[in-house]
Design a protein around this nucleic acid. Structure first.
Lengths: 338, 338
DNA sequence: TTGAAAGCGCTAACAC
DNA sequence: GTGTTAGCGCTTTCAA
């Protein structure tokens, strides 16, 4: 690994000159020396040592992508196609902009903070923050932060959030169920915070607008931990008779549920209608194909990275960016209008 | 961001002492000063600047995970649950060992090399290398390399490979089809190199051992690019009448194919039996549930990272680590024995 | 147009 | 047990 100093020595010039050529500060260098250096650089295949550069410039060119994983969902986080698609979008955008991506998964914000500080990361993309997580991080970390899918009014003062109109999404799909004659509609999720709360709210609103009363019985709680999920699905399937349709908070859960239902001889959509949220390959390849709310996950990653990049180059960005949602009608909802 | 120098100054001692305490070289320091420094460290919440440390020590504590994406499979790479599970396993292992992970996706080995060199990455995990890619990288990069799922006899001289007994996997499942009375069995894949070739070979071998002749017509080629996949599936479905079973090179393709078949009124497994390879959530949640070859993807990531870590601490590791494979019989194969 | 030199924050060899 | 200091590779200011 050759250094600038060594190059300068061999070429009989100063490190400054070499450095200038490297950085294309062509105005400062005669064409002659420029060519000489350039040729040499190519010949030896010079690669800068980023650590030295970062140290000198006090920047890192690193963007951190920190995923906060709830302990009980860690396995799912890792296997969820949602996550890989998001990572893909972020990575691609960061790389094309000449930055680097450091991925860090943890259930502990303090750990995330330590990581980010040691690396002197230039900017941060946060996913999976709940409650005050985002604010806590932004109090410590004074560089640009972009959150993905975070719900925190307070937080928006401190960072940009890239999200979805989740409420509208479930509103639309619940409403669609209602137009198909459904009135006994359950909502399935594993918690009632953040994104899931917003989706629950949209669902409730649609019920309300249709004059249907929401009871807490309508909330079906799934426990995603692999040791509990079977039992949990069993309970839910038993309770499914009380409803004609279930709004699932994600495609993953919708598909998981459909498999469980079908295993018990309950047919979708004949016995019960199921809808999801996300529109990923899980639902697309299921038969009957899942009726769901579409979101463009890769675009979410790209937008988050782009926004951060903009902030890094000194631009202002809105506090809140909401990507659109779209109803995708396929085959898991039955029209039960008489 | 406070520095060691500053701490030393405020505490009226030398940087060495502070540094010693930080690194737990407790034997070198009196209990008294140790405590004083420790308390101060906690108070100011000291975080080391890794760039400086790396520069001084000529190491980075970074492990690079480079995914080489074939251009025509980029979209799939990113959305494939396989990849996120692999990343998850690697990340977790690296983090627990006190290292950091840098993720880099590219279709160009030269780019990957530049990236790895600038960051002075301590070790490298490579996925998706085909042909001589791995060797080319290892010629340039002189630190430990672990490949995942790479087939290259030559390469094994230069790096450890973590893989699967792919051949055995398809051998077993093809054999299973044969025991269920199938003789007209196709193989579906998008290429004939690396892992896919090994799986094809296992399939061919099972046919041969059963006295069934393999014809090149038995190879069904799918084109994964999103602009072509529909057309490609259409052709395949048309040709499906010629077979009673299809061995798919992955669960992803098996499930994609099953959806296409079902859309055309061809029922699985009544009209045709389908098997996959991987055993991921796609097949698990499909109904009928997919009969497939199980592999533990997370374990693959963990093993790759562990192996690299071992090499980093100076241990020798075998050139080749083969994780086991297991037949998972579910519901997509019909017994057609008369 | 080119060069010398200071300094980024940390480590480690060596001296006290 | 503690302190001094050179040096990691690069950038950048200032002088020539």
């Amino acid at each position: 690994m050759i250094t600038i100093k060594e190059i300068a020595k061999q070429l009989n010039m100063s490190t400054t000159t070499v450095s200038n050529v490297i950085h294309g500060k062509t105005s400062e260098v005669s064409d002659d020396t420029k060519k000489k250096v350039q040729d040499f650089l190519d010949k030896v295949d010079y690669v800068p040592n980023i650590n030295a550069r970062n140290l000198a410039q006090n920047e890192s060119k690193i963007i951190g992508l920190a995923l906060k994983a709830r302990a009980d969902k860690y396995e799912n986080l890792i296997m969820d196609p949602f996550v890989s698609e998001l990572i893909g979008g972020v990575e691609e955008t960061i790389r094309n902009a000449g930055y680097f991506m450091m991925l860090y998964i943890s259930s502990d914000t303090t750990e995330i903070m330590r990581h980010v500080s040691t690396w002197n990361v230039d900017g941060l993309i946060l996913f999976g923050m709940i409650g005050d997580d985002g604010i806590r991080v932004s109090e410590k970390y004074k560089k640009p932060i972009v959150c993905i899918d975070t719900y925190s009014i307070e937080g928006l003062k401190h960072f940009t959030n890239v999200g979805l109109d989740d409420e509208q999404g479930t509103y639309d799909i619940t409403n669609y169920l209602i137009t198909q004659g459904h009135r006994k509609i359950a909502f399935l999720s594993d918690n009632m915070t953040g994104v899931d709360l917003a989706r629950l709210t949209g669902y409730k609103k649609a019920l309300k607008d249709a004059g249907i009363k929401y009871k807490s019985d309508n909330f079906l709680k799934i426990r995603p931990r692999s040791s509990e999920i079977e039992e949990s699905l069993d309970e839910i399937c038993k309770r499914s008779k009380d409803f004609t349709a279930i709004v699932c908070v994600s495609d993953l859960y919708a598909v998981t549920l459909m498999a469980a239902l079908e295993d018990r001889g309950i047919s979708v959509p004949n016995d019960i209608s199921i809808v999801g949220f996300d529109d990923n390959m899980l639902g697309k390849y299921h038969r009957p194909a899942l009726t769901t709310v579409h979101q463009d996950i890769k675009a979410k990653g790209v937008t988050a990275a782009d926004t951060l990049l903009k902030q890094l180059s000194g631009h202002k960005t809105p506090n809140q960016i909401q990507l659109p949602t779209k109803l995708v009608i396929r085959d898991t909802v039955k029209n039960i209008q008489k």
